[in-house]
């Protein structure tokens, strides 16, 4: 069966990075609003990771289109706001701006430089950060949802045409985002409360992996029982050409490994001081996140023509009259 290749691995990278950036920024903004100055390093890292991942994703998308230089002029090229592609471009733009500003205010060096420009910029930085973090939550959630909606609104791609797809991509976005931040906390955070935060994040990873697994199962079973072409697409994933990528990449690396790594830390099987375990969990989670986008893209077959009039006409044409 012919796989979908018009949007290939680069678009999968874009959808993945958009989700990852949104997920890690949501984690960071929530962490900042809840704990303020307690985890400076993690907040700084998570904010930059969010802004940079989304910006990189946007660059990857630009690299993939036919006319990148034309596309980059947002206000001229993304003008049809009924199109989810255009809405998404503006959402990405807003997210890069807000996440980036928050990241700048979370970096001492840059804040000191801002103070020289205009003092209130620096002296009021916590106020700005609070405002930005509150603004960022819906915008980044929007980015995560959008990566799924972009595909979900296409009626003639039955495997994508479901609200379960945005749900699945958002679950994966949060999962990879928290996973990335958790990996960083284990590796670098030196606050007195690191232990507590780490436990909380690993617990969240386990919960999110469980949610993602449930949504994935729901999505696939809906598709199996859905229209013929959707069922064929789902079959491609579970038993067809791309099933190795699906079972090893998405289920193994994306769900099982992060879950087991988190479990081993929470249960005390893995030593608390061992950094390798959370890092393996984080990296594996990220690879799985990309694979998820890639297999879903590849399996997105077009609905076969089933116009009743066409079928009727074809049935009526005889080679020998």
């Amino acid at each position: 069966m012919q796989l979908q290749t018009t949007w290939g691995w680069l678009v999968a990278v874009y959808l993945f990075l958009g989700g990852l950036g949104a997920g890690s920024f949501i984690t960071t903004a929530a962490l900042y609003l809840a704990t303020r100055e307690r985890f400076k390093r993690t907040v700084r890292f998570g904010a930059w990771a969010g802004a940079v991942a989304i910006a990189l994703g946007a660059l990857v998308l630009l690299a993939d289109v036919g006319k990148p230089l034309r596309a980059i002029v947002l206000f001229r090229s993304f003008v049809n706001l009924n199109s989810w592609m255009a809405r998404g471009a503006w959402l990405l733009f807003a997210a890069i701006l807000i996440d980036g500003l928050f990241a700048v205010f979370s970096t001492e060096l840059l804040t000191a430089w801002l103070a020289r420009l205009w003092l209130p910029l620096a002296s009021r930085r916590n106020l700005w950060r609070t405002v930005l973090a509150i603004l960022a939550l819906p915008v980044n959630l929007g980015v995560a949802l959008y990566t799924g909606i972009l595909l979900g609104v296409l009626p003639f791609r039955p495997f994508w045409h479901s609200w379960l797809l945005p749900a699945l991509f958002t679950a994966s976005a949060l999962d990879t985002g928290v996973g990335l931040v958790a990996g960083y906390v284990a590796w670098r955070e030196d606050s007195a409360y690191t232990e507590k935060l780490h436990t909380a994040l690993e617990g969240t990873v386990m919960a999110l992996v469980a949610v993602e697994a449930a949504v994935l199962t729901w999505f696939l079973s809906t598709m199996q029982g859905g229209p013929l072409d959707a069922a064929r697409s789902a079959q491609l994933l579970t038993a067809g050409q791309i099933s190795p990528l699906f079972w090893v990449g998405v289920v193994g690396l994306g769900l099982a490994v992060p879950f087991l790594m988190a479990l081993s830390q929470l249960s005390g099987v893995a030593k608390r001081s061992a950094v390798a375990v959370p890092l393996v969990g984080a990296v594996s989670c990220l690879i799985g996140g990309w694979m998820l986008r890639f297999v879903v893209l590849s399996a997105g077959l077009r609905a076969s023509l089933s116009s009743p009039s066409l079928l009727q006409i074809l049935a009526g044409v005889r080679f020998w009259p």
Partner: peptide
Amino acid sequence: KCIGCRYCFFACPF
């Protein structure tokens, strides 16, 4: 005006 994003390819039933 076209930027070659190929979104229309996925929207077209044909």
